[in-house]
Design a protein around this nucleic acid. Structure first.
Length: 345
DNA sequence: AATTCGGGGTA
DNA sequence: TACCCAGAATT
């Protein structure tokens, strides 16, 4: 099966910017960016990131805020923080290069079993399996697996299958080939079974029901949450505050606001004036409401009600910055809050 | 074992 | 809309 896949890959491999060089740093950056993120979205970020941080030492000496700024809009910002932390670990406690063992890679933040496997297979030519979303879909179809692919038993069975199929010869090309297969042929919908080099081995293809796999555990519905945010303006600048380093949108900057909650009652102007004085010690003008912003996260939907005030008196207390408009790209701000800021026109 | 992390592409 | 994506960390 591996040989059939590799022969197909030799003819149809995608031309991607992180392919063609055996530079483990480039492969590492690409693998991190590609976690839960489509190839098309990653490509411009990858090019820009490599131009700004061309090698591991240049990443390690950078400030984490610079790294987050390069990451803004890509999502899952913890990945950027972990990537940066891992680079510093390698420079300070390692030999300046990525480990070339599974245990060594797994000890670094942001690298799990699948990413470690990809780095070792593609970067070092080691026979190590991967199990990403593509491989899950391909193998669960090959096996016509009935148990949920995201269950404990399902994952164990898929890892075992992935390991058994990985060849000692060209394991890196094999890893990329099976990901290409999942992306281009064994697609989530409308798989192109006649073009598949594995069709004769695939139980789902032979039974004509590839779309029935993978089966997944039932997932609960996403709740709707609401928050207000206050845009305080002073001489063409807006007040932004940093989010905690951990948790949702960790380390990104935002205008001050309430935490997202499922229960919602619209705040009146007096309440907001009180709230910002209590939080930052400022006097502001009576806030005017702007059009609400809708945004979808993985596990909840959010409606933001922005309000606009002019700064009147007292410097803001606590961690806060006056940021001139439009907000510079060097400051890490999430897509959500760039949408909110855009409400000011 | 379940939950928490974004954002965009796509049918 | 709902699902998917080169998943990992946390609890």
């Amino acid at each position: 099966m591996a040989q059939a896949l590799l022969s197909h890959y030799d003819l149809h491999a995608r031309d991607l910017p992180w392919r063609g060089q055996r530079d483990t740093y480039r492969i590492w950056v690409a693998e991190i960016m590609l976690q839960q993120t489509g190839v098309k979205s990653v490509i411009p970020y990858f090019q820009n990131f490599l131009a700004r941080f061309p090698d591991l030492p240049s990443l390690a000496i950078a400030e984490v805020e610079e790294v987050l700024a390069c990451w803004q809009g890509l999502g899952y910002y913890r990945r950027a923080v972990h990537l940066h932390a891992a680079a510093r670990l390698v420079m300070q406690h390692g030999d300046g290069r990525l480990p070339e063992t599974l245990a060594g890679l797994l000890a670094l933040p942001g690298i799990g079993a699948s990413t470690a496997g990809a780095i070792l297979a593609i970067g070092s030519g080691q026979r190590v399996p991967i199990l990403d979303g593509n491989v899950v879909r391909v193998l669960s179809r090959v096996l016509a697996m009935e148990e949920p692919a995201d269950s404990s038993a399902g994952r164990a069975r898929l890892w075992e299958m992935a390991d058994r199929l990985t060849p000692a010869d060209r394991p890196g090309d094999y890893a990329q080939a099976i990901m290409d297969l999942g992306a281009r042929i064994c697609r989530p919908r409308n798989p192109e079974c006649p073009a598949c080099p594995w069709s004769s081995w695939c139980r789902a293809c032979q039974s004509g029901t590839p779309m029935a796999h993978p089966r997944l555990m039932p997932k609960r519905t996403r709740p709707e949450k609401y928050q207000f945010t206050l845009l305080v303006v002073r001489e063409g600048s807006v007040l932004l505050t940093p989010r905690p380093a951990r948790g949702l949108l960790g380390g990104m900057w935002e205008p001050p606001g309430s935490p997202p909650e499922e229960t919602w009652s619209a705040p009146d102007a007096q309440t907001l004036v009180h709230w910002i004085k209590n939080r930052h010690g400022m006097e502001v003008s009576s806030p005017t409401p702007l059009a609400p912003v809708h945004h979808a996260f993985t596990h909840f939907r959010l409606t933001v009600f922005p309000f606009l005030s002019d700064w009147l008196a007292h410097e803001p207390s606590g961690e806060a910055r006056w940021v001139s408009l439009p907000v510079d790209a060097a400051l890490p701000v999430s897509t959500l809050h760039r949408k909110v800021l855009a409400r000011m026109g």
